[in-house]
Design a protein around this nucleic acid. Structure first.
Length: 922
RNA sequence: GGGCGGUUAGCUCAGCUGGAAGAGCAACUGGUUUACACCCAGUAGGUCGGCGGUUCGAACCCGUCACCGCCCACCA
C-alpha cells in the first residue's frame, strides 16, 4: 500500500468489490474538508451557479421525495462545479410551524409534562428551541449520506436571527404599502390545531354524507300553493298547499346559525313568500325569506338556508343582504355558550350536535327525508379533521397585487418552467388567486410584529420600540401596547428563502453574487405553496440597479413524484413508503442516486423498487471491476498523453465513442434530461467500454510490450478517467474512490474539469472499422448459439471470395475474431464447402464448416426465416419506390436511402438464396 | 365543472425535428477461458388504446371516443 497522504488520498490496491458503507463516509469527509462545497474557494472570476435547497422541515427525516429532489440538485451542482463554476448549493431548514409544535406537544404529553397552555408561551417556545437543538435537523445529516454537496457552513434556518429580520422587514414594508392587512372574514379553521389555515392547506375529499331535508314552518301558519307536477312545457299542472319552506343541508348543526332562507328571484314557486318569515326550528327564531341570485332553482328544493358565519357562499349572501351572522362554534369546534344557541346544545361537539339536531327536527315532524350523498368535504392537510369555515380576524397578504409581476415574468419568459406545461398550472392558480391568510394561532413561528393599544389601534413595526414610537406619536407616551398573539404561516418565511438565506436585508457579497439563483429544482406539489410565493416576494423585494424587479430564478425544473412499484403515491398513511436510507445501507448511495436519475424523465413520476436500485449497484460493481482490470493490466494514467497521436484503430475508435458519450451526457444534463444523461453514460461504460473495448484490448494488453501496448494502456486509462468524470454527478462516491485509487492526482474528482467532447479526437473510419468488427463477431456468435455449436468448440472460418476490404478486416483482426467468436483457424475459398453454416456480414460470406455438428433442417429453417424477413422489407421499400408521389415529393436523401437499403438487402438475399440452394442438395 | 398528463414487449419505461419499433428487468437457451455469477454469450416477445383525418410517409401532427392517473373548483 502506497500512502499518498500528502494529497489527502490513500492509494491502495483495489479490493474485490467496492465497500460503500466504509467509503462513503470517508469520502464525504474528504470533500467537505477540501473546501469543494464552498464557492468562496473557487476562482474569483468563476461564474456563479446557485441553487437554494427546498428547505426540509426541521422535524423531517429523509424520504424518497427528498432523495430524488436532492439527487437532481446535486447532479446539477457537481456538473457545474466540474465546469468551473463557483457553485453555491445553499442548504437549510424550515421551522415548520404546525408540524414542529405538534411534535413537541406530543413529546410533552408522552413525558407526562404539563401541556403548552399551562407551561405558558415563553417556556413552550424555549422548549421547542431545545428540541430543535437536540433532535431537529436529522435530515441534514441524511442528505450528507446521499452525497449532497451543499455548503453546510452556510446552513440557515427560517427562525434564525437573520431570516427573522428578513421576515419582519417584509411584513412591515408590505403593511406600509397596504399589501398586507388585517381583516375579519371567513377562514378555514382547523379545530384540531385551533388555528386558521390557508386555502392551500385544505384538502377537499369526496366522502359519503347525507343530505337532510327540513321543513321551516312559515310564520303565523301562513300557507302558499307550491307546484308539484308540470306539463311538457314546464308549466305547473298540480299544486299542494304548504305551510313551510323546504331546505336541505349536509351540515344540520349549522342551522342553528341560520340568518335567512334564500331563493332565486326568478323562482316563481317561492315568489309568494319572499319577504315573509319562517321559523328557525330548535333555535325558535324567525328568519326572513329573501331573494338572491345565489340559489340554483334546479338544485334541491331551490331554497337555501343562509349560515353566514359558517359557509363561504352563505357568507357572501349574508353580506350582500345584511343578514346577521351567528358564530356557532369555538376554536375546538364545540357549540358556543351563547344565548342564540339553544341551551341543550351548548359546549357540545359539532358532530354530536349534528345527531341531536336531526333527531330533534325529526321529533318535531319537520324532517322530510334523508338522502345518501357523496359530498366534497374539506380536511386539514396535517390534522386530517374536517375544516370549519369560521368568522375570525386574521392577517392577509394581497396576493392578487403581488401576483401581477409574478405572472408577467413567466409570460415574458424571464422565468421558465421545465417542462414548460407547468406554467399553465402556475397561471391558472395565479390568475385566480385569493388573499393569502398568513396568521396562525400557534406559538412556534415568527410572531406577528403588530401591537395594539387598549382602544384597538394597530401599530406595526420591526420591534416593540419601533411600534411604540409610532403609537406614542398618536397616543402620547406610556400607552400600553399588547403584541398580536399570532405567528406567521411558515410559507411566509419560505417565500423569502432565495434572498433571505443570502443575507438580505443586509447587502452581502453573497447576495450580489448569487441572486438571482440559477435554477429551482422542486416537485409540482409545492408550486403554489412555495414557487409562486417566492416569485411574488422575490420580484417585489429584489430590484436591480435600474429598479427593475429581479426574478429569484430564471429556470424552474419540476420533477415528478416518487411512487411505489404499483404506481401509488408514497405516503405515511398508506404505509407504502420506502426508506431511502435503507436502500443506501443495502446498495449504496450511488446506486440509489443513479436509479433516481435514470428514471427522472421529464413529466413522469419515478417508480422505485429494490430491484431497480440493485441493478445500478451492479453497475457500480461493474465499473469497479473494470477499474480492477485496468489496474491489473497496468493501464496507468498518463497526464501527458497526446490523444491525437493515438495510432491504433482500437484507440481511435474508443476515443470517438468517448467523445460521443461525453456530448450526450453534457447535453442531457444541460437540458435537464437526467434520464438520457444517465443512460448514455451507463451504456457507454458497460456496453461499449467493458463489453467491447476491454475485450478487444485484451490481446494487446496481454501481449508483448511495445509502443502498441503502451498506447492502448494509456488510452484505456484515459477513457476510464473520462467515464469516472462523466459518471461523477450521478455516482459520486464510487467514482471518487476509483479516481483517487488509480493515480496520484492533484485534485479530487469532485473538482476535476468536466470532459470536453470537442477536445477528444474522433475518427470516423476507425469507428466504422471497429463497429464492423463488432458486428461480425456478434453475427458469428449468434449463428453459433442458434445452431447449437458447443460454446467451447473452436471452429474453422472460411472467407468465401472476399473483397479486398473484407479480407483486410479479417487480416487485421484475426486474433480478436478468433478470441471473441471462438474461431480456431482462418482460411479462404472460392466457394463455401457443402453443408457449411454461412455467416453473412455486409457483402461478405463466411463459412463455418461443421458437418458433424450441423443440423441441415435447422440451418435451412434459419436461412429461410431470414429470407422471408428480407423479402418483407424489400417489399415495403419497393412499394415506396414504385409510388410516384413518394418519388416526386419525398426529399432526395430519403429516396436515396431507400434505394441503398434495397441494394444491401438484395445482396444479402442473394447470398442467402445461394446457401439454401446448396443445402437443398444435401 | 375546469385544467394537466398517460395508454409502446409479461413488467417499468425511452423513442427529442414525421422517414428502418428500443432499453432495463423478468422469461428461455448456453457458459467455472486469470476484471466481474452483483458476470458473460445468445434467443424469443409489439396491429405503438380504438376509430377517423392530414401527409408520398404517422408511435410521433389534427379530430374523436374509451379507459387510467393527478391538480383545481362554493352546488346548499
Amino acid at each position: 500500500m502506497v500512502d499518498w497522504a500528502d494529497k489527502g488520498f490513500t492509494r491502495r490496491m483495489l479490493e474485490k468489490t467496492f465497500d460503500p458503507v466504509n467509503a462513503e463516509a470517508r469520502i464525504y469527509t474528504e470533500w467537505e474538508a477540501s473546501g469543494a462545497f464552498d464557492p468562496s474557494k473557487a476562482d474569483a472570476s468563476a461564474e456563479p451557479f446557485t441553487i437554494v435547497i427546498p428547505p426540509p422541515n426541521v422535524t423531517g427525516s429523509l424520504h424518497m421525495g427528498h432523495a430524488l429532489n436532492n439527487t437532481l440538485q446535486d447532479i446539477l451542482c457537481r456538473f457545474h462545479r466540474m465546469r468551473g463554476k463557483a457553485v453555491l448549493w445553499q442548504p437549510g431548514m424550515d421551522h415548520a410551524g404546525i408540524a414542529t409544535q405538534m411534535v413537541v406537544e406530543r413529546q410533552l404529553a408522552a413525558d407526562g409534562n404539563e401541556d403548552r397552555r399551562s407551561m405558558g408561551r415563553e417556556a413552550f417556545v424555549n422548549r421547542v428551541w431545545k428540541w430543535k437543538e437536540e433532535s431537529g435537523g436529522q435530515i441534514l445529516n441524511q442528505l450528507r449520506r446521499l452525497g449532497a454537496s451543499c455548503d453546510w457552513s452556510r446552513t440557515r434556518f427560517t427562525m434564525d436571527k437573520g431570516l427573522s429580520e428578513a421576515v419582519l422587514k417584509v411584513f412591515v414594508q408590505l403593511y406600509e404599502e397596504g399589501l398586507l392587512y388585517k381583516d375579519k372574514r371567513l377562514v378555514n379553521w382547523d379545530p384540531k390545531f385551533e388555528t386558521a389555515i390557508s386555502d392551500l392547506e385544505v384538502e377537499n375529499k369526496e366522502v359519503d354524507g347525507h343530505f337532510w331535508h327540513f321543513k321551516y314552518p312559515l310564520e303565523g301558519g301562513e300557507t302558499y300553493e307550491f307546484p308539484i307536477a308540470f306539463d311538457d312545457n314546464g308549466n305547473p299542472t298540480e299544486w299542494e298547499t304548504r305551510d313551510y319552506i323546504s331546505i336541505a343541508t349536509t351540515r344540520p348543526e349549522t342551522m342553528l346559525g341560520d340568518g335567512a332562507v334564500a331563493v332565486h328571484p326568478s323562482d316563481k314557486r317561492y315568489a309568494p313568500i319572499v319577504g315573509k318569515k319562517c321559523l328557525l326550528p330548535l333555535a325558535d327564531r324567525y328568519i326572513p325569506i329573501i331573494a338572491d341570485e345565489y340559489p340554483d332553482p334546479d338544485f334541491g328544493s331551490g331554497a337555501v338556508k343562509i349560515t353566514g358565519a359558517h359557509d363561504f357562499n352563505d357568507y357572501q349572501v349574508a353580506r350582500r343582504n345584511d343578514i346577521p351572522m351567528y358564530i356557532l362554534m369555538d376554536t375546538k369546534g364545540r357549540m358556543v355558550d351563547e344565548p342564540y344557541v339553544p341551551e341543550k346544545y351548548r359546549c357540545k361537539d359539532r358532530f354530536d350536535v349534528r345527531k341531536e339536531v336531526v333527531a330533534d327536527i325529526d321529533q318535531r315532524g319537520l324532517l322530510i327525508m334523508v338522502e345518501d350523498k357523496k359530498i366534497m368535504q374539506p380536511f386539514g392537510d396535517r390534522s386530517g379533521v374536517v375544516i370549519e369555515p369560521m368568522l375570525t380576524d386574521q392577517w392577509y397578504v394581497n396576493a392578487e397585487e403581488l401576483a401581477r409581476e409574478a405572472i408577467s415574468s413567466v409570460e415574458s419568459g424571464q422565468a421558465k418552467f421545465i417542462p414548460e406545461n407547468w406554467s399553465k398550472t402556475y397561471f391558472q392558480w395565479m390568475r385566480n388567486i385569493e388573499p393569502w391568510c398568513i396568521s396562525r394561532q400557534l406559538w412556534w413561528g415568527h410572531r406577528i410584529p403588530a401591537w395594539y393599544t387598549p382602544d384597538g389601534s394597530t401599530y406595526v413595526g420591526l420591534n416593540e420600540a419601533d411600534a411604540r414610537q409610532k403609537a406614542e406619536a398618536e397616543h402620547g407616551s406610556g400607552v400600553t401596547l399588547v403584541q398580536d398573539e399570532d405567528v406567521l404561516d411558515t410559507w411566509f418565511s419560505s417565500a423569502l428563502w432565495p434572498f433571505s438565506t443570502l443575507g438580505w436585508p443586509t447587502d452581502t457579497p453573497e447576495l450580489a453574487k448569487h441572486y438571482p439563483t440559477s435554477v429551482l429544482v422542486t416537485a409540482f406539489d409545492i408550486i403554489f405553496f412555495w414557487v409562486a410565493r417566492m416569485m411574488m416576494m422575490g420580484l417585489h423585494f429584489m430590484k436591480d440597479e435600474k429598479g427593475s424587479a429581479v426574478i429569484p430564478f430564471p429556470e424552474i425544473y419540476i420533477h415528478g413524484l416518487i411512487v411505489d412499484e404499483k404506481g401509488q403515491k408514497m405516503s405515511k398513511s398508506k404505509g407504502n413508503g420506502v426508506d431511502p436510507l435503507n436502500l443506501i445501507d443495502k446498495f449504496g448511495a450511488d446506486a440509489l442516486r443513479f436509479a433516481l436519475a435514470a428514471q427522472a424523465g421529464q413529466g413522469r413520476n419515478v417508480r422505485i423498487s429494490d430491484q431497480r436500485v440493485e441493478g445500478y449497484r451492479n453497475f457500480s460493481t461493474k465499473l469497479w471491476n473494470a477499474a480492477r482490470f485496468t489496474e491489473m493490466n497496468a493501464c496507468a494514467v498518463d497526464e501527458n498523453l497526446d490523444l491525437t497521436s493515438a495510432k491504433e484503430t482500437l484507440s481511435q475508435w474508443i476515443l470517438s465513442e468517448t467523445a460521443t458519450c461525453a456530448r450526450a451526457v453534457t447535453e442531457g444534463i444541460e437540458a435537464y434530461r437526467f434520464n438520457d444523461a444517465a443512460n448514455a453514460v451507463y451504456r457507454f461504460a458497460w456496453n461499449v467500454f467493458c463489453d467491447w473495448h476491454l475485450e478487444l484490448a485484451k490481446p494487446i494488453l496481454q501481449g508483448p510490450d511495445g509502443p502498441q501496448k503502451d498506447e492502448v494502456r494509456a488510452v484505456t486509462a484515459y477513457v476510464l478517467d473520462q467515464i469516472l468524470i462523466l459518471m461523477h454527478p450521478f455516482m459520486p462516491f464510487v467514482t471518487e474512490e476509483l479516481w483517487g485509487a488509480r493515480a496520484k492526482r492533484d485534485q479530487h474528482l469532485i473538482m476535476t474539469d468536466w470532459a470536453d467532447a470537442d477536445a477528444i479526437p474522433s475518427n470516423e473510419s476507425a469507428a466504422n472499422e471497429i463497429n464492423s468488427l463488432i458486428d461480425l463477431i456478434t453475427e458469428v456468435r449468434s449463428v453459433r448459439a442458434e445452431m447449437n455449436v458447443p460454446a467451447g468448440a473452436k471452429i474453422e472460418m472460411i472467407g468465401v471470395a472476399l473483397s479486398n476490404e473484407n479480407q483486410a478486416l479479417i487480416d487485421r483482426h484475426q486474433d480478436l475474431i478468433g478470441r471473441l467468436a471462438r474461431i480456431e483457424t482462418f482460411s479462404n475459398a472460392k466457394e463455401a464447402p457443402r453443408g457449411a453454416i454461412r455467416v453473412i456480414h455486409n457483402d461478405a460470406v463466411f463459412a463455418l464448416p461443421l458437418q458433424d455438428i450441423i443440423d441441415v433442417s435447422a440451418e435451412k429453417k434459419r436461412l429461410t426465416k431470414e429470407v422471408a424477413k428480407i423479402e418483407k422489407e424489400v417489399g415495403v421499400i419497393d412499394k415506396k419506390l414504385m409510388n410516384e408521389k413518394f418519388m416526386s415529393r419525398a426529399p432526395t436523401e430519403i429516396v436515396e436511402e431507400q434505394k441503398s437499403r434495397r441494394v444491401d438487402y438484395q445482396k444479402r438475399h442473394a447470398k442467402l438464396q445461394e446457401a439454401l440452394v446448396q443445402l437443398s442438395d444435401l
